[in-house]
Every structure is written in structure tokens, then in C-alpha cells.
Design a protein around this nucleic acid. Structure first.
Length: 598
DNA sequence: TTAGGGTTAG
């Protein structure tokens, strides 16, 4: 009946029937295009003034509920501007529509402020919830905090939607302490969304044990997780390199019949890849019924991380065949696959492909290219690439260049790179240590001493690296020379044994070159109590049956650790998989399966 | 009309 409504008839109908027609028409719309079509049809009906405003607000609300794109946001704004006296409902809808990832200016917050200044209509709990969501999407912590205090003043804070909005804002801004305090205050109101948000917050900042403990608490509280919760739990395992945990969580997902949707599959691919089981990642990928750019990217990045360039590139070309548009992250995978396998020409070709496809290169993409050129020994090309970049190179890029020129006698590059590094990050100990090691390598001991002095003068202290090992579903963390562990005595016995075996193998600790002017005892500590070695020692102590020891480091793997892990693996007959921040080093019987070790 | 999720160089 409704769709047969014609303009002359419209003028004669009572208001409630017209409104019902509007509601019906808008409800049919499944896309932005359909909404525009409905808008045009409603205009042709020449509705009375009030019904017209009603129609615009319904269109606006539907637009706000659609996919959060830039197009939807701008259409919503144009609808809003046509409404003579916008109600709170209209403001709420526009604020909701403005919360798009492509709208980083916190426009939603500005609109909320405008509403407050105008004095009417008054914001309600919907307004605050939508505005908080916008701040969480950007993310804009400062604006979000202002919202928090305003919500408090207006008495809107107790609304459970405002509460979860605040919790999620803080969780997304990596303010876990603030998020936790909101979460703790919710007590009775804690629902699935609140639990998931909090777990996601912990997962995001790498507080894996906290994320998993909370996941257990949630179940104990009788709240059943869904696929959204599981994404956070799985990505926490991925971050920690906790394969056993990840596997048991995956089994839990299957047991509970939780839907493994697009996002959860992607998280599983990432988890298996980061935990060293690339074959398993591949199985998850192959079983997917629907794959988007992120899913393809996760698979490509995973393969690249494992040095499987051929597979990564094959997957990439299949992706192109299926007309899935890659993004800059996909190209991070493609370019790093080339870099790790010395495929300079291919890498440069893919770089041009990326430009041709109109994909804007990010700092990471430039970084991949610099890495590609450096690893292939094309130092000059790398240098000119860096100096002609349209964006200012960051410290990662300069460090890469510096490491690449360590045995090149290119004092110009070393000079520029170190100058840039100390300008960009005067307080980062990594730069001092790197340069000092570089001088030590060339036996320039006076320069080594100068770097140490400079470090001292600038009050730069080395932040200890941290390694962790997963034993019985728990992550045990260690830092260098960490004597605080309750079982440190037993660990030291194993360490002593490791040191003996390592020294007997004839390996000369690399660190000793840098520590040439320190005492024997310090050298021994350097050899002995690296965080990673503490973790391996603890693994040897605690795990008898499994032959695999997995250690995750938050720092870059050093050549000395690489050598020592190989020796331990061979000597104890254990497979050791060490993952540093970026990739894998798998040692089995003394050989290293990592192809790109420098 | 309300809230939670996945891929990112060394």
C-alpha cells in the first residue's frame, strides 16, 4: 500500500499515516544509495513541514546506523543541516554518523560541544554514548575525558551505556588503569560487552596474563563469551607467542560452538603465525568462507614473517585475481617477504604496483623498501631512497641504515644516520648501544668510551629487555640479571651449566667485545643472565617431557643470543623456538631455520 | 537511536 503513495494523495492524508509511510520507506533501505533514493521520493511527496522534518530525522538515524564511512558522515551532515530545529535525537544521530575512522578530527565531539553551548536540546545518555564511541574510534583521549566529566556533571554517568562507552574509550586509548576503575565500578552492570571491552584493553597493551585471568573470571561469573570476546583472547595469545594457550583457547571455541567468523579467523591466522605454526594458520585461512583485505594481509604477513616468500607472493597474486583490493598493510607483507628473501627486483616491482594502485605508502612501507635495499647490499640505493622520501624518515629507518653500513666504511652514512637518531630520540638507549657496538666491532675503543660517556651525560639508562616463557598456561617473565624470581637459585644452577656448555663449545661471547673494559664477572653476567637465557633456563628446569621450549622477547634478537640458543638446543637436544618482537628463530639440533639472519 | 573484535617495517 505504502509504496503506491502519490504526491496529490500525500497532502490529504493524516500525519500519523504519512509518518508510518516514512518509517516503512526508510526501513526498506539497505544502503546509502537506497537512502538517497528514499530521500528523493519523500521530497517528491511535498510533505507538510513537520512530517518533512520527521522524515529527515528518520533518514538521518538510518544513515547513522549504516556502515561508518566518510560518505555516510557527509550525507548525515547534509541531512542535519536541512532540519530547521534539530531535536536531541537528530544531534545523537549526527554524532553517531560522524564516528568514522576516516574522520580523525573528533568532529563528533565538536558537535556535542556545540549542543552544550546552545543550551538546547539537552544531551541525554544516547548523546554521551555516541560521542564516547566517536572518541574511542579516533581515538581521542583528551576529548573523551572531557566527556566523562561533563557526563558526571549532568548526571548521565550511571547509564550502563555511558559506562561501557567510557570503559571502551579508556581500553582503546590503552589507559587500562582508568578502564579497570570504570569496570570495577560497574559491578552489577557488567555484561558481555563490558567484559569483552576490558579483556580487549588488556590484550591491546600486551597484559596477557591479566586478559586471560579476566577471561576466566568472566566465565566464573556465569557470563558466556561470544566470538567478539574470543578475538581479544586469541590476539592476547598472539601477542604473547603463547601457542599452547592459543591452541587450548581455539579448542574451547570449537567446544562451545562459538562462530568462527571473519574477524575471529583473522585473529586465529595471526595467532598461529606469530606462535610459529604457520601450517595451522594456513589451514584456518583455507577454511574461511569469506576473506577480506585484513584476512589476506594477515596470511601474507604471517608467511613473510616465516621467510616463505614464494607462498606469500602466490597468495598475493591470488588475492589480486579475486579482485580483493590490497591496502598498505598487505604491501608490508609483500615487501617484507621480498626483503627477507633477497628479491630486490620483485620488491621494486611491487613498490611500483603499489603506487599504480593509488595506495599511499606509510612509514612502514618505506621502512620495508629501505630494509629490502639494505639487506641486498645496495647501500647507495638505500641511502638515496631515504634522502628522497617525501615524508621524514623515522628512527627505525635510520637505525636500519646505520646497521647496514656497519662494515662499509661509509662514514658519511654512519655520521648522518647517527646524527638523525640522536636528534629524533636523544633518550633512546638503543641508539647509544647500537653505535657503541658498531665502534666496538671496528675496535674503535675511544669512540666506544665516548658513547658511554655521552649516554651518562645525557642521563640515558638502559631499559632492561624482557623475555617470557609459557609454562602450564602461564607466562613467566624475566629481565636481565633478574634475581627476584622465587626459584632463582635453581635457575642459576641451570645457567651455570649452560655457561659451561657454551664456553666448552668454543663460542666467544659477542657481548664481551663490547664489554672489553669490564671485569670478568660482568662478562660472565653478560653471557649468563640475558633475559632470554633466564627464560630458557627456567624452561629447561620446569618442562621435562615436551621437547619444545618457546621464548618470546620484546627486544631484537642479538647475534650472541642466536649463537647461544643454537648451542643450548644442540647440547640439550631440545627444540627451541625464540620469537623476538618481529620474527622467528627456530633452532633444532643446532641448525637455524631462519633464513634472513644477519 | 545506545556499547565490545581481526592484518602494520627492524
Amino acid at each position: 500500500m505504502h509504496h503506491q503513495l502519490k504526491p496529490p494523495e500525500a497532502a490529504t492524508l493524516p500525519r500519523h499515516l504519512l509518518e508510518a509511510h516514512v518509517v516503512w520507506l526508510v526501513r526498506q533501505c539497505r544502503s546509502l544509495r537506497a537512502l538517497r533514493g528514499a530521500h528523493a521520493r519523500l521530497l517528491r511527496l511535498r510533505l507538510p513541514r513537520l512530517t518533512h522534518a520527521f522524515a529527515l530525522s528518520k533518514l538521518l538515524a538510518s544513515c547513522a546506523a549504516s556502515a561508518p564511512t566518510a560518505a555516510a558522515a557527509s550525507y548525515a551532515r547534509s541531512l542535519f543541516d536541512q532540519i530547521p530545529e534539530p531535536t536531541a535525537f537528530c544531534y545523537n544521530s549526527l554524532i553517531r554518523a560522524l564516528a568514522t575512522p576516516s574522520n580523525p578530527t573528533a568532529d563528533a565531539f565538536l558537535l556535542y560541544r556545540r549542543m552544550l553551548r546552545a543550551g538546547s536540546p539537552s544531551p541525554n545518555s544516547f548523546t554521551v554514548a555516541f560521542a564516547l564511541k566517536a572518541c574511542a574510534t579516533v581515538p581521542a583521549l583528551g576529548e573523551g575525558r572531557q566527556l566523562h566529566s561533563q557526563a558526571f556533571r549532568q548526571g548521565l554517568e550511571p547509564s550502563p551505556y555511558v559506562q561501557t562507552g567510557l570503559l571502551n574509550l579508556y581500553a582503546r586509548c590503552e589507559e587500562v588503569a582508568l578502564a579497570k576503575s570504570v569496570f570495577d565500578g560497574m559491578a552489577e552492570d557488567r555484561n558481555l560487552v563490558a567484559w569483552s571491552s576490558m579483556i580487549g584493553g588488556y590484550s591491546r597493551v600486551g597484559m596477557v596474563n591479566e586478559a586471560l585471568d579476566l577471561f576466566r573470571d568472566m566465565q566464573a561469573a556465569g557470563v558466556n563469551p561470544d566470538e567478539v570476546t574470543m578475538v581479544s583472547v586469541i590476539s592476547a595469545c598472539a601477542k604473547a607467542g603463547a601457542l599452547d594457550l592459543g591452541r587450548s583457547v581455539h579448542a574451547f571455541i570449537d567446544r562451545k560452538g562459538i562462530t568462527v567468523d571473519l574477524e575471529l579467523s583473522t585473529a586465529l591466522i595471526d595467532m598461529y603465525a606469530k606462535c610459529g605454526l604457520i601450517e595451522r594458520a594456513r589451514l584456518v585461512f583455507d577454511a574461511m568462507v569469506e576473506r577480506d583485505t585484513k584476512a589476506w594481509s594477515a596470511m601474507i604477513v604471517g608467511l613473510a614473517m616465516h621467510g616463505l616468500a614464494e607462498d606469500a607472493l602466490a597468495i598475493f597474486s591470488r588475492m589480486l585475481q579475486l579482485k580483493i583490493r590490497p591496502n598498505n598493510v598487505t604491501f608490508i607483507g609483500v615487501l617484507s617477504a621480498c626483503a627477507h628473501n633477497g628479491l630486490v627486483d620483485d620488491g621494486q616491482r611491487y613498490w611500483s604496483t603499489m603506487q599504480e594502485m593509488g595506495i599511499k605508502a606509510s612509514m612502514e612501507n618505506y621502512g620495508c623498501m629501505v630494509d629490502l635495499l639494505c639487506r641486498s647490499g645496495l647501500l647507495d640505493e638505500a641511502y638515496s631512497f631515504v634522502t628522497s622520501m617525501p615524508i621524514l624518515p623515522n628512527s627505525v629507518i635510520w637505525r636500519n641504515l646505520l646497521v647496514a653500513s656497519k662494515s662499509s666504511n661509509r662514514t658519511d652514512i654512519v655520521g648522518l644516520a647517527s646524527k638523525k637518531l640522536f636528534e629524533l630520540e636523544p633518550q633512546n638507549p638503543e641508539n647509544y648501544v647500537l653505535l657503541s657496538n658498531l665502534y666496538a666491532l671496528n675496535s674503535q675503543w675511544d669512540r666506544v668510551r665516548y658513547m658511554r660517556k655521552k649516554m651518562k651525560d645525557n642521563n640515558v639508562t638502559v631499559v632492561a629487555g624482557c623475555s617470557s616463557i609459557e609454562i602450564n598456561s602461564y607466562l613467566h617473565k624475566f629481565v636481565v640479571s633478574d634475581g627476584s624470581h622465587p626459584e632463582i637459585k635453581e635457575i642459576r644452577v641451570v645457567l651455570r651449566e649452560i655457561a659451561d656448555r657454551v664456553l666448552r663449545s668454543g663460542h666467544k661471547p659477542w657481548t664481551a667485545a663490547v664489554l672489553h673494559d669490564v671485569g670478568e664477572e660482568e662478562k660472565e653476567i653478560a653471557l649468563c643472565e640475558h633475559s632470554e637465557r633466564l627464560a630458557i633456563a627456567y624452561g629447561l628446569l620446569k618442562t621435562k617431557a615436551p621437547h619444545v621450549i618457546r621464548v618470546v622477547k620484546n627486544l631484537r634478537f642479538c647475534p650472541d643470543c642466536h649463537e647461544v640458543s643454537k648451542i643450548i638446543s644442540k647440547s640439550y637436544g631440545r627444540e627451541i623456538i625464540v620469537r623476538d618482537r618481529v620474527r622467528f628463530h627456530r633452532f633444532i639440533g643446532g641448525s637455524c631455520s631462519c633464513k634472513d639472519f644477519w
